[in-house]
Amino acid sequence: MNRKLDRPDFDVIAGWMQPCERVLDLGCGDGALLKFLIETRGVSGCGIDFDDANVLAAIRNGVNVIQSNIDAGLAGFGERAFDHVVLSRTLQTIRHTEKLLTEMLRVGREAVVSFPNFGYWKNRQAVMDGRMPVSEDLPYQWYDTPNLRFFTMLDFEDLCAKMRLHVRERQVLDEKGQMITEEHNFLGSLAVYRLSRAAAT
């Protein structure tokens, strides 16, 4: 699915994990993130991926992986079976966005979602120049992209509000993986959100 090596969101995600917590990584690719979290944070868990090559690579990496299509939901996973359900740079490839976010917070106490921010100034500039953006975080051409959804941080936060999801934390990175502290939706290339279900009112 997506490239997973040297990804700046790994450190952000790792910072939100505690030892012994259970992590489910959706669209886990070759398992690099899970392996990183297991080795650096002492978590346990497993990944899900649908792609043959990724499943094979994850097994080679010694990561538990379940071959399954996450677009079909997370049936089979019990409620609150995991502390964190991670969706790293994959939300934009998902057809049933709301359903998956709901499922993530059924199966997990918290959800971690990272995605390329379409509102990043270079992307806006590309569109102004009459071209679909191609960048570090959106590395595909329009004709070979696995991405189905193009959305900005503001769009995502609107959806969270509509779905009554609570944004516990948010980290925004530029193309070099440096933390952005202002004008997030303009300067941020990659956004990482830590979500939970809103407390019952």
Binding site: C46, I59, N64, V65, Q67, G78, A81
Partner: peptide, 15 residues
């Protein structure tokens, strides 16, 4: 697989 996941046991699954 689902029974093992429920138990938090180590499992990988290939289809």
């Amino acid at each position: 697989v689902d029974a093992l996941l429920k138990n938090r046991q180590d499992v990988s699954y290939a289809e």
